[in-house]
Design a protein around this nucleic acid. Sequence first.
RNA 1: GGAGACGUCGCAUAGUCCGGCCGAGUGCACCACCCUGCUAAGGUGGAGUCCCCGCAAGGGGACCGAGGGUUCAAAUCCCUCCGUCUCCGCCA
Length: 421
Amino acid sequence: MIDPQLLRDSPDVIKASLRSRGAQESLVDTALQADAARREAIAAFETLRAEQNVIGKDVAKASGAEKDALLATVKELSTQVKEASARVAEAEEAASSALGALPNLVIEGVPAGGEENFVTLREVGTIPTFAGEVKDHLEIGEALDILDMERGVKVSGSRFYFLKGAGALLEMALTQLGMKVALENGFVPLIPPTLVKPEIMQGTGFLGEHSAEVYHLGEDDLYLTGTSEVALAGYHSDEIIDLTKGPLRYVGLSTCYRREAGSYGKDTRGIIRVHQFQKLEMFSYIDPADAEAEHERLVSWQEQMLQSLGLAYRVIDVAAGDLGTSAARKYDVEAWIPSQSAYRELTSTSNCTTFQSRRLNVRHRPDKGGSTEPVATLNGTLATTRWLVALLETHQQPDGSVLVPEVLQPFMGGLSVISAS
RNA sequence: GGAGACGUCGCAUAGUCCGGCCGAGUGCACCACCCUGCUAAGGUGGAGUCCCCGCAAGGGGACCGAGGGUUCAAAUCCCUCCGUCUCCGCCA
């Protein structure tokens, strides 16, 4: 949710942000009107309520004819109060949906435009070259018997898979490496629930534009999360947290579920786009003043991962029109995928500023004894199943084997090469 | 799954039977000051969250798990939901 005060004071700033996203500017005027109507309704109700409270006290003290007279006036007042209160509820509903329709304010410097308007911040590492034929991760995985799509489909349908043997170990090793990096930087590990209540799903913004993406269990009215970001953001909802000793950083490990509706025919081969995968996710609660610096830190830890794994990548500043509702800026780290001769997203890290925390009601108290302020939240990927695609393809050998990056070997019992047995 | 108890201001509790004098007492913790003097005790005062109006001083409203209802008036009465605990049953 956008800061309502900002909406009132500087609607033009928000309009400019909407323009850069390619969204409707008129949303701002609608929200402004709804906000004004809401405040008007509140004022009307409170005036009546105050009067009712005063007379109510007199009723308690009075008796006899005097009491009957007071009762008559206050009865009339009571119906007015009820009506006014109903109008407040309506106006509040309208205002919150109008305000909720506004996406987060984009940070200055974010490229305007749609998906193709991203800006490449840097390219790092050497793009691998291969003497012979380049195999894709599925071909490699099947030949080594570490990735089994066929049986995944047999058991669960399309976009499901089995990781087997060294493949399963590789994913766990990657997770542990990420965990090591996170621990070194003060993150607290969390293994969160992957089924959440509607209000948490709503609060993190995934029931808006992503609603078709989300699995819902009707019987229990619970949602399967597509990222642990949901539970990590909900973790401190409705709390006043202490940031005086620095940011609260969590690293969440969870299985993620995505319906991938609307992506039929896209990335159907292999495990680039699947319904279920593992993800290690960083999440920071921080003073808004320090959010942009934290954003850079999150990216740097992601890059540290990619570098240590010997992957070539680029970092892009995602264009405003391609940002999620909650994000004020988003950096993607994209790894080189040899079989596609293209960079593909391996991580994504968003600065949600105070947008998410307003909705989830997460605050802190910057000054002792002072008032509360919303915190900033940021999230970023540290490892996912998709990384196996880049790892297998980049480190494939002419004989069909795959070299295991040195940093992963300790987590795989010292295994340095995955070869067909 | 069956039976019962409970959910109050950071924590612990009073208040609910008999609706108004209860936005709410007490203890602990907290903050400021005083006293004393020394890793303690005592005294005084202050403290919650959210919203509305206001340049401000200030004024007003809401919040006793959540949501409805009854009533002029609800922490208190009624209903629904959520959660916690105890006992019994069942089970990885």
